[in-house]
């Protein structure tokens, strides 16, 4: 008797296939760093076994902001207006605190037009994964400088940027974000670990991901080109992420690592490369970032993490169930309440 062996289909811990985590086909340029980031996002949500309906996706305007259509295709997404994604994400998470929010922005969308909402998002420590797909230029309007372009970078037409860049990571740390990292779209392993850590975190997780623009900003004069970043990438440490899924215990030799336990029991391991980098110190993080600017390096890794800090929703003392779907009995006070107010006005 012939037997056909059906190979077991690849699924994650909640029994979903990788395809569930994909979105529609990318319309960005071939080779765009943003597409690599999309792939890592898909992988991270798959690996972490997040139910797609529990997620809400947000973006502003720009090449980066198109990308939420390319992952988690069955998930609700909101493509907001330029630079204002943080407020839309905030509103949604206020309305439904059980959602896991992920916002994708760009360097123009964040550091120029969106800087106002960005800084207030960071200081609120809203539980949101905030990704900047950072190429130092405006791709969708054909390559103008953004505020993260390095001093001295040159546009294709020869224009030189004379202004200093805004370091979104330093800013986020200063303002109160509780998980701040920088990575490179081409660094699969590091980016995946940082994304998985961000998914497990309960607070603002800000990831600035250098993502070269193959069309407008991948030439010799650019400090955000693929080759420039490859040559100047200085990983702060090797980041590994160990998820916590209840009964799965991972035995890991700490060796020369710093370990951070996230709110759900997951652990982030940072392998120390130099003088005992401490990701829980704001001062140390800012020093490292400042030094890297002086040395013309792009330092990557997890700069700062703080667990156990109350996030914005905790501070607001909102009920556990989504505000959006509370029944009428919970949101319309009884007649006695109105009577009491009326009596006080007589």
């Amino acid at each position: 008797m012939a037997t056909t062996v059906v190979p077991p289909r690849k699924t994650n811990r909640i029994g979903l296939e990788p395809a569930v985590y994909k979105g529609s086909k990318s319309t960005l340029c071939a080779g765009c760093g943003h597409n690599a980031i999309t792939e890592r996002i898909i992988e991270a949500f798959y690996e972490m076994g997040v139910e797609p309906h529990r997620v809400a996706k947000f973006s502003g305007i720009g090449c980066s902001s198109k990308s939420p259509a390319y992952f988690l295709g069955s998930t609700h997404g909101f493509n907001a207006v330029h630079g204002r994604m943080p407020s839309v994400a905030t509103g949604t998470l206020l309305a439904n605190r059980t959602l896991l929010g992920i916002g994708v922005s760009g360097d123009g969308d964040t550091a120029s037009i969106g800087i106002g909402q960005f800084v207030h998002l960071m200081r609120r420590n809203l539980p949101l994964i905030y990704i900047i797909e950072d190429n130092g230029c405006y791709g969708l309007t054909k390559g103008q400088f953004s505020a993260t372009a390095d001093r001295g970078s040159v546009l294709k037409n020869g224009v030189v940027n004379d202004l200093p860049p805004i370091d979104t990571c330093a800013l986020a740390i200063e303002l109160g974000a509780t998980y701040v990292a920088r990575s490179f779209s081409g660094d699969k392993k590091q980016l995946l670990a940082l994304l998985e850590g961000a998914i497990a975190h309960r607070g603002t997780a800000m990831l600035d991901v250098i993502s070269p623009c193959v069309t407008f900003n991948d030439h010799e004069g650019s400090t955000k080109s693929y080759s420039y970043v490859k040559d100047h990438d200085e990983p702060l440490g090797e980041v590994s992420f160990i998820p916590f899924f209840g009964d799965i215990m991972v035995d890991y030799d700490p060796g020369s690592t710093t370990e951070v336990t996230l709110h759900d029991g997951s652990r982030l391991l940072l392998k120390k490369l130099d003088s005992g980098y401490d990701p829980t110190s704001k001062v140390e993080a800012l020093r490292v970032l400042s030094e890297s600017h002086d040395n013309g390096e792009v330092i990557t890794g997890l700069f700062y993490v703080k667990t156990g800090q109350p996030n914005f929703l905790d501070l607001l003392n909102i009920v556990d169930e989504p505000l959006a779907t509370l029944p009428e009995a919970k949101v319309r006070p009884p007649k006695s309440a109105l009577d009491e107010v009326m009596e006080s006005l007589r």
């Binding site: 407020s87 994400a89 509103g91 949604t92 309305a95 439904n96 959602l99 989504p322 959006a324 779907t325």
Partner: peptide, 10 residues
């Protein structure tokens, strides 16, 4: 923006 995000979410 927050009103829009919240209204969208119900």
């Amino acid at each position: 923006g927050m009103v829009m995000g919240a209204g969208w979410a119900g």
